[in-house]
Amino acid sequence: MNNIVVSSSPHLRTTDNLKRVMYDVVIALLPAAVISAVFFGPHALMLMIIAVATAVLTEALCLKIAGKSNIRQTALDGSAVVAGLLLAFNLPPTAPWWTAVIGSLVAIAIAKHTFGGLGYNLFNPALVGRVFLLISFPVQMTYWTLPTFWQTDAVAAATPLGALKTDGLEAAQAFTTQGNFLGTIPGCLGEVSAVALLVGAAYLLIRKVITWEIPVCFIGTLAVFTGIFYLVDPGKYADPLFHIVSGGVMLGALFMATDMVTSPLTRKGQIIFGIGCGLITGIIRLFGGYPEGVAFAILLMNAAVPLIDRHTEVKKFGV
């Protein structure tokens, strides 16, 4: 008989593992990826592939530099794929191919591996990549086109939020909620269709990869915040529904804010985190210089996570 194993209890482990969690996220992102490829055409598809490939390669390189073993397995555990795909979702449809490369590089090498790799990063890697690109290449990052079926030559257009910021409410109202929902309005690759994102998030909720606290609190707070202003002056402020379905709220609240590594551990903390994200997004959209504030809101709240964690510890049994 071979040597039998001695180890610490428990000797049974769940069949769920990191890879499954991460590829569940990839599966959940697929509907949105398909829709953006359909609407924005081959270039969008190429951006997604480039971003994912760069992310995985960068991950492998960083692991090699860090002297880790099992590089192939760790790089393909899905976390880099998710980061790359989310980064691509944050690019405008006409973004040059090199923005996807630079964004993924920054996301994986700087936002993730300088902190120690998976599990140790303070900020959501894809969002750091996006913000880095937005600040470094503002022109390329804010050139929007109108989604048409499998488009090959793009028609320039403004996003609903951009229109709201620069041209005022009336221009923004030209976009129907329905269009926002289905994805027939200009925007980032992943932002166009709220329906596709909701379908993906429902899958994640069923698979218990994400919890309801962050998305509900995020979107709820944003609705309440913008709703108050809408009620005060409907002539100046857009209605809450417009705010919820336009821009990156759905993508951010459902997929970026819910990133396990950069969100609080406890349910109570997740509620605070969601509320904070919603509030900051609202403030930036209504009063800030940028038309969109989701990325900044989530990054700011990421920074607050250690603090939230410290003050929202669960109450232990028997006290």
Partner: peptide, 19 residues
């Protein structure tokens, strides 16, 4: 030695879990 120890590879960990 008897058995293969799988777990946290420190002496203290092996002792504390009687492994």
């Amino acid at each position: 030695r008897e058995g293969d120890y799988l777990g946290i590879k420190t002496c203290a960990a092996a002792v504390v879990s009687n492994n």
